[in-house]
Structures are given as C-alpha cells and as structure tokens.
Design a protein around this nucleic acid. Structure first.
Lengths: 340, 340
DNA sequence: CATAGTCTCGTAAACGTTTACGGCGATCGA
DNA sequence: TCGATCGCCGTAAACGTTTACGAGACTATG
C-alpha cells in the first residue's frame, strides 16, 4: 500500500495532519512517542511530502540549480570536470537537505531566456552559473529577481554577486614567466570560445607579464577552438604547418590537450621537443606521453567552496557560514611534466 | 517593476485572475484582444507562473529528470556522451514545453534511496535512468510509484518498462567474428564496473560467438576498470607485462581508450601492431594514432528516440507518438581504423 | 486552591495556480 | 419577438503542505 497525501497518512494514524506534519518536520511540540509512530508509518507506507505543496507553502523548494549548456561549443570541459565539482557541492548541500540538479539548457535555446523562464518559475532557491560570458545577461537577470546565486567564473557584467573563478591571473604569471625564462620568445595560446570570459582574463595578464620580459603576445598566435579532441587536433595541425611556428603553446581547453598532442604527432612534431605545451587542469595529463606540464587543482574542494559561498549569501543559511569567501580566485599549482 | 503573482497581474490589468490564467495558458474562451493585453503585460512585467502553485493544481510539473551519479566509478562514460544525448532529448521536449534536468546523485548517497526521495516528492513527471545495474532496485521502485520512465540500458530486474540500450549483442557478434576471422585466438575485454549490466550482456554474447569459431573467452582476460584515462592506462600496463599476452582487446569504456593507448605505448607496445584494439564509440577515435577501429553511433539521435519512447509511455503524450519503439537496441556501425 | 506555565495537539488559514461552473450580453434563427 | 446559442468573463473551489493560534490537560509554584 502506498499512501497518497499527508491527509491519508493522518487518517490512518488517527491524528490530525498538523501533528503529522510537525512530527515529520522535526518540530519540537510533539510527543516523542507520537513522532515515532508517525515516522514509522511514513516509512512503512512510503509517504514523502509532496514537493509542490511544500514549496508553495514554504516559498522555497530545497533545490539548487546548476545551469549548464548541452552543446559542446561552450561547455565541453567534459563530464568529469563538472561531476567532480558536483560531488563537492553535494557534500555540503547534503548537510542541509538541499538537492542539486543540473539545469540543462539546450544548445537550441537562448541561455538568457532559458534562465529567465526557469528562475521566474520559482524552480530553485539558488542558482549556480558556469561558462560565464564576457557580456552575460544572466547576472542582471538573477539580480533583478533577487535570487541568491554564485558564479563559477567572472564576467564584465558582474553585479557584485559572489563568485569563484580559477586564478587565471596567477596562472598567466606563472606560465609566462616560466616560458620567458626558458628562452621562449613567441608563445601561442589556445582558448575556448571568444564570448567566454576566461580567455580574456588570461590573455590580458599574459600581455603585461610578457611586456615585463620585453616580449609581446602576437595576436596571430591566439587560437580559438572548441574544447574537445577535434578542436585540439585541428590546432595541432595548424601549428605544424604554421609558416613561423611558435616555440610554445599554452592550452586553456582541458578537453583539447589530447587532441592537440595527436594533431602535432600526426604532423611529425613531438610535444615538449619541437614545441612546448603547457595545459590547464586535465585528467589525462599524467597519461599522455610525454607527460603534460599543467596546472592542477582540486575540483572537489572547489565544489565545496562554491556551495559554501552560495549558502553564505542565502539568508536562511548565512549564519552557518560566517567566513565563507565572497569572491575568490581558486589557486592552481603547476605540475611539472615533460612537455614544457 | 516586477509583478509577484497572477493576482497582482490581474489587478494591474483590472480583469479577473481566471481570465488571466486562461489567456496565458492559451485556452480558447478568451477574447483575442484581452489575451494580447495579458501577454504583453506579462512580458513587460516579467511575470511567469509559479511552478509550485501550477504543479500543485495540475498534478504535473513539466519536468523530466535524468538521473545520473556524480562519482566517476559508475558513470563517466567519456566527456561528451551525456551532453550529446541530452541535446537530442531536449529537441523533443522543447516541442511540449517540458524541461530536462539532471538529477545528480552524490557518490555518498545510495542511488535507490535518492531516487525514492526525489520521485515520491513528485519532483518530475517522468524519469530517465542511466548506468543501469544488473540488479537495480530503481526499476521496481518507479514501477511501484507508477511514474513513467525509460531506461538507457537494460537490467535483469526489468519491470517491462520501455528502454533503449546499445546493441551490445550486435557489437559482440561483429567484433568477435572479425577478430576470429583475422586469426585472433586469445581476446581480452575491458569493461566497466561489474555491477553494471552492459558488460554482462556483451560478454555473454561474446562467449557464444567465439564458441562458434571453436574459441573460448578466457576469464583471466576480462579486465575491469574505471571508465577514464587512469583506468585505461593501468590496463595498458597490465597487458604489456602480461605473461601470456592476448593478441586483441575490445574496450567497452569509451573514456578509457586514450589511456589504454598511452599505457601500451609507455610500455613499448604499439596498438594495432603488437595488439589489436577495438573500441566502443569514442569521440577521440579519429584523433588517436593509429586511428581507432571502433563502433560509432549517433548519440543525439539516441537522445531523440529516448525522449520519444518516454513520451509514448506517458498518457498525456502517448497519442502523439503512436509508433515510438517500446524497447530498442540501438545499432552501432563499425568504423574501420588502423588499430585492429 | 488558584494561577501560571508546559506539553501536546487540533483547527484553519494561507501559499499561487487552474478550471468547472454559471452568468451576462450579444447574436442568430425561426 | 423570443428562445437558443455563443463568446467572454468572474467566482470559487480545489491541489498538499506548513504554521500561527488557541484549547485542553497536566504540573509546578505560591
């Protein structure tokens, strides 16, 4: 037997629905013996409170949405990237009975319109944004609706909300200094879609760091590709037949590194010998040959911080996370490999 | 100005909430001029119907949940696998105003308990299951709750629900016949976690096909690994130092193929020369060297079919999809490469 | 014994929406 | 002209919860 609503459950127990609700929600003005009976019956009869009714009354849903897009051109950093972050996020949410769902925006739908629709509906109590664009309407939209949110990434159209972003400035400084000191004079960069903010942040810092070494970033050496195998392969080929080939390339697309290696090799070039390759975090870094020199970070910890940062901006939970960072650049460590 | 509920919107327009609701929902007994005014005002004031209220009244949410797990041990079938499927699913759902969300089950939570909680809450109108286990409580659970669902994958604990699964039988027949005819006598298989159903289906068929060629599948040549780079690499190493190395390996983990190549190479073995490698669908197949011989399929089309199959099992939409397949093995085509 | 306080529970009013029902003009057909 | 039909709209009742409020039965305190 499966019971329908709290009313049926109350009838079955011959107590009022008010008491049943209080018992289930852990309110204190209910006899412990009664509570035990209620919980036991709920478990036995498979009763779980209806989400819609509860959300309607409480004004909150207990759901946090992580927005991502299902095309590969924008997001495409691979399932393992987000899955690791999610795992961290959830360990925090689990403590508060919050559920994380991924809001999947189709590549055929406008992301801004999608978010507007989902958010205005009151679907989620809080939102996490990823793949932040340089100009991104979503920030103003969420701000207008007064929905708590945090972004994994920055944007020029920031509205003062909390964020966590990878420390691309630190990365640029470290990698460009290293390359310059090792005698590289002409350095290429592979970055994802131009609309995304991260490439701009990285490139800007690269320019100033290179200038300090009397070098310039050549615009012609900035490659843009989809963050996947195919994109990397193509750039590998392009590099190989480049009339004035650079001596190093820094790869921001973590999904492209393997493709790049193969593209170079297919053209007869050896990464780390004919051209230095330095990548962003990449799960396959250790398994490439030569081993990839890249920046590493703990995605799971990042997820934990992301969750705490969001909760700190939600009135109901803020008190529990008094010293969560409001805006944070996530540090990355350079892992030495053999590729550059 | 942002309007709060349908009541405020109605006041603002000086008509009743009933009419506003009808206008917004495209009911026909409302004057076209009135409807225009309502729609215009709703757009201008940023009104969108509250999801909880609507769901409570209608008894349906307009949300379909795709359950996946955030650990890498189970899911992790390669980077773009799910994103491609999702994209197909959504093109179908978009026609009906349904939204797809990914229900993310933490690796720390029991999948069955998670699903029970989410489903009983009335969160979604329909469910898509993936990473189906050989023994999988989730089928009975959804059946008991009478929630329409479809599974991407089969299970022994099937309850007669619709499913789509990759045609592992066809794959086994094709690949084993090919290898046998090319003179391979000792063939290894790399599969994901033993709990998952797919490996068992594949292996079983392999046994009968090999038997027809007078061969046997050696239990010692069945490798199990996480579906990622690390897993593949390790198996590559294991193969290289195997005292009685097989002459071919079939890889079911699409995320492991690159790692396997690198593992073999690191041990001085050349795929396709020292050992034949045949993979399942893999986005990086074309970019490996040697080019991977593998089975290809259209994940986007699979997503479309998956959505249609689910809708066909939902009373509200069944009439629209009269000839959607109920249970379907998804065909895969062998793409010749240089690896085996 | 009176009063205040405590523990437990029932009652009923929200929350925002959809929709069955009925009503009121206007139009139409005979 | 009259009844029937139709187009349009307002009213109010659900949907399943949570929770403020108050009632009743005790207990403690003076």
């Amino acid at each position: 037997m499966v019971v329908k609503g709290i009313r049926q459950l109350a009838e079955h127990l011959e107590i009022s629905i008010g008491t049943v609700s209080r018992a289930l929600n852990g309110k204190k003005d209910v006899n412990e013996e009664t509570r035990r009976r209620v919980l036991e019956a709920a478990e036995r009869l498979g009763y779980v409170a209806n989400q819609s009714g509860r959300a309607l009354r409480k004004g909150s849903t207990g759901v946090i949405g992580f927005m991502m897009q299902t095309g590969h051109e924008i997001t495409g950093e691979g399932d393992t990237f987000f899955m690791s972050v999610f795992d961290g996020v959830q360990t925090v949410f689990a403590r508060h009975g919050l559920d994380l769902v991924a809001l999947l925006c189709s590549s055929e739908e406008d992301p801004d319109a999608y978010l507007e629709r989902v958010v205005a509906r009151g679907f989620a109590d809080g939102i996490m944004l990823s793949a932040t664009r340089r100009i991104d309407e979503r920030f103003a939209l969420l701000d207008r609706r007064k929905i708590p949110f945090v972004s994994l990434g920055r944007s020029l159209t920031d509205v003062g909300q909390p964020f966590i972003d990878l420390d691309f400035e630190g990365m640029a400084t470290t990698v460009m200094t290293r390359l310059a000191q090792r005698g590289h004079r002409r350095i290429a960069v592979l970055r994802p879609h131009d609309d995304l903010n991260l490439g701009h942040v990285f490139l800007e810092r690269c320019r100033t760091v290179l200038a300090e070494h009397g070098l310039a970033l050549e615009e012609g050496l900035i490659f843009t590709a989809s963050p996947n195998e195919a994109g990397g392969y193509r750039v590998g080929q392009d590099l190989a037949r480049h009339p004035n080939r650079p001596s190093a390339i820094v790869v921001l697309n973590d999904g492209s590194v393997t493709g790049l290696f193969h593209g170079l090799e297919a053209a007869g070039l050896t990464p780390g010998k004919d051209i230095a390759v330095i990548g962003l975090h990449s799960p396959q870094a250790r398994y490439l040959s030569p081993r990839l020199t890249c920046f590493d970070l703990s995605l799971r910890d990042l997820g934990i911080s992301l969750a705490e940062t969001l909760l700190a901006s939600m009135p109901a939970y803020a008190a529990l996370y008094p010293n969560a960072a409001h805006r944070q650049l996530w540090p990355m460590a350079l892992i030495d490999g053999d590729s550059g």
